[in-house]
Structure formats: C-alpha cells, structure tokens
Design a protein around this nucleic acid. Sequence first.
DNA 1: CCTACCGATCGGTAGG
DNA 2: CCTACCGATCGGTAGG
Lengths: 250, 250
Amino acid sequence: MVDSYKAHGRHLPPSKSTAASDVPTRILEEATRLFAARGFDGTSLSEIAGAVGIRKPSLLYHFPSKDALRRSVLEHMLSHWNELVPRLLKAATSGEDQYDALLRETVGFFTADPDRARLLVREALDRPDEIGALVQRHVRPWADVVCQHIRKGQAQGRVHPNVDPEAYVGQMINLIISSVATYKCIGDVAPRGVSPDEMRRRHILELCRVAKSSLFISPASATAQGRENGRENGRENGRENGRENGRAAR
Amino acid sequence: MVDSYKAHGRHLPPSKSTAASDVPTRILEEATRLFAARGFDGTSLSEIAGAVGIRKPSLLYHFPSKDALRRSVLEHMLSHWNELVPRLLKAATSGEDQYDALLRETVGFFTADPDRARLLVREALDRPDEIGALVQRHVRPWADVVCQHIRKGQAQGRVHPNVDPEAYVGQMINLIISSVATYKCIGDVAPRGVSPDEMRRRHILELCRVAKSSLFISPASATAQGRENGRENGRENGRENGRENGRAAR
DNA sequence: CCTACCGATCGGTAGG
DNA sequence: CCTACCGATCGGTAGG
C-alpha cells in the first residue's frame, strides 16, 4: 500500500518543503508525527519512509531497527525537553508569579508540538517501565525542587497545608500532558457553539487556574488571574516553545 | 507464535478459571484486557482467542471482524458506565459533600478496573472523532448538570467566581481517567522509598483535594479533607465500582 | 540510497 | 467450534 514500486523518481519526492534538514532528522520528525498519530504498532516503516521520500531499506540504513528508531524518537524529544529545564528551574523559585511562569513554560512545551504529549502518553501505556525510568531521570530532579518550594510555601503559610507535594506535582504533570494529548476529545464535553480552538484555550486557562488555586492560599489566584481573556495565552503550535512569556505573568 | 497448531485438546484450555461466563463474554473480557495493555494494533486476534482458549476462526464466528470486536468492547464498557450514571446524577446536587461523593463514584469506576481508563485513553488517541462523539452522547448530559450546579454555586458565593465550568469539568474528567491510566508512570515522579500502592493512594487523594480545592471557596476543603490517611480510599481493583463510599464523605 | 527478496504473521474465508 | 488455507503486509536482509 505504501511501498509503491513505481513512480518515485528523483523528481517530486513527497517532501514537505520543510527546507533543509538532513535525512536522519527528517526520518525522526516524520516518525515522531506518525508514532504520535497512529502509535508505534500502527505505523509501518514503509509509511515513515514514504513520508520522508525514501524506501524502507534506506530508512533501515540510518536506523538499525524499528525499535532503535523508536528510542531515537524519544531521545530526540528529550533533547528538546532538556533545553527547557534550566529555564524551568529558574522559574521554580517560590511565589505565585514564578509558579505561573513555570506552568506556562511547561504547558508551552507541549502545546508548541502536541505530538510530544501524544507520544509520551502512548509510550506510558505501551512501555510503562521504560517511561517510568525516563521520568525518574528527566523529571524527578526538578520535580523535587518544586516540591521543596511547595514545602517552604507551606511553612510560610502561603501554600495550603494539606497539599501532598509529590502527589500534587505528579498530578499536575499528568494533567498538562494528557490534556494536550487528548484535547480533541475533552473539548467535546461541552461546546454549545464554541469553536474547538476557543475551547482549547479555555481548557489551558482553566488548567493553570486549577493548578494555582489548589496550591496557594492567597486569594489572588482566585480573583486577578481568572477572567483575563484576550491575552497571548492560546499559543499556536508549530513554533518552538514560548520564550516571550513568563515576564508578563499578570 | 500464538496459533500453536498442536497441544490444544479439550483438556486444559488456558481458561483463567473465571467460573462460568459464556464464550462471547469471555472474548469481550480478554479483548478488553489485551486492547488496554497492548493497544488495538498491538493485539492480534490469535492472542485474544488463545487467552479465551479457542482458535481465531471461532472468535470470528462470534464477532464478524476485529473492528467489530473493538466496537463491542467499547459498548460493553459503556454499558457498565451507564449503570453508574443515575447514582452520579443523584450525587451531582450542589454542596461539597455531594461533590465529594460524585468524585469518588467516578474515580471508583476507573480504579475498580483500570483497563477502562487505559482503553479510553488509547481510543482517544487512535480515533479521536469516534471517542469525541461517544463523549458527547454519554458524558456531556451529566457534565451539563454538574456545570449548572457549579454556576448555581457561583451565584451563591460558594464556588470560585473565576471557575470556567465546562473547562473545569473537562479537565477533571481528563485528570481522573489519565491518572488512573498512567499511574504506573506518574508514581515514578517522587517515590523516595514509598511503595507504589501507597503512592497511588496518595495520588488519588490529592486528585480529589485538587478538584475540590480549586472549586469551592469554602476553607473546609483546605483543612478537613486532606490528611485523613487510613481510610478505605485505596480501593482494590477486580471488584465492581464502589458502593460503600459516598456516605462517609468526611 | 536502491531493487529484490526472505520468513513470519496479520485479518479473514472456505468448508465442514 | 475446528482445520486448512488465502492474499497482504510486516520488519528486516542480501547485494550492489
């Protein structure tokens, strides 16, 4: 169905006109897209090769096996994630405004390319042990930092005393990733004529409100932050994660 | 690999000794389990047939195709869900205790059989349009009722005025389902020696706290509910969803 | 980076 | 409910 053994001359390969990029990178990008959309088992090497404009054996020259390609896709995404971590840690200092920046950075990473969220959720279901180890290595370090700030906030009376820091952080990460991964469906809970894009924006806003409102005692999060509608919150995908936010947190 | 064309005499079929149940029901159960664990594309009809103790063509006698089996699995789960809806609507009257019961009923439905959550998340990723339509039919009606109660609570000053009811309900449903579906991974965010079961219990407790704390203005949710540890919350799977809760909400 | 090809397994059917 | 079998497609290799 995909390995069409004809009509593939050097002219018009199905390239997406994504400018340059070498072949291995193109393979990684198309594999990410297809794994996220159809899953690992639901995607054939021929499909990926076809999307890149080469043939299956050529793909297997760059990546020794399908599973090796899968691991490379994960590593590729993690390298993007690691670029963000320093900024995350900088934003993780206590205070509600700083926490808002931390939330927006994290949400922005996944809304900038929802495939990241879809891929992570799929892998968490398909290979929980592997993703678990990955979470331990790449998420837990700065999650621990956030937990420390939460406990400090509790000692200072700014954070609800009954927050379970580890569980709270785990649930918020879970909420961010899965809401981006499945926003096509949760938007169907209640759109009485609201556009899908508008509903998605409202979901992101509500996510941030829930995260802060359930953390801070301060009534600030319950009044100032909520109904500021026409801001640059609904970040468009395609661009790399936002770096223009975090300043104008309110 | 699975269709072992030998050693399958009437004696010792790989039945799980699950007592009675007719063959179609057994097929549905094993298909649910395998689809949830490995995904639709990652599960072969031979595997399902083997788990039931029959052969692939026999399975295709009961279900005309693999896709028909998938749809039946979804319907089978929805029939269980529909049993719960009346109780849900009864619990959906306003008030924090009633809302706590609603949360526990919903959480209990998925923790009673986490495969339900895993299956839903997988289907939402694989066939978002189909699950979207399903959400519209089976979730939106009572979600609308909950939204009405939230607005009433806002009018009475018991609920945060900046809650976006539709978005809030969508995110809470999303949070419940995905946290049950991926609890094997989010538990790895921060277990410094805590057992996985204990961490799962804390995640469920924190989920309920976040849901209430971000909704109600009342400081009750910020003090009374949090640190009551040794209750019967960590419901074991295998049994049908809980009916012993909802009474002792605090 | 390609053509040609491999064994294995897939969903599904014939026929009883 | 079974055996036997179908064409299609899978991941991967040989060889250039």
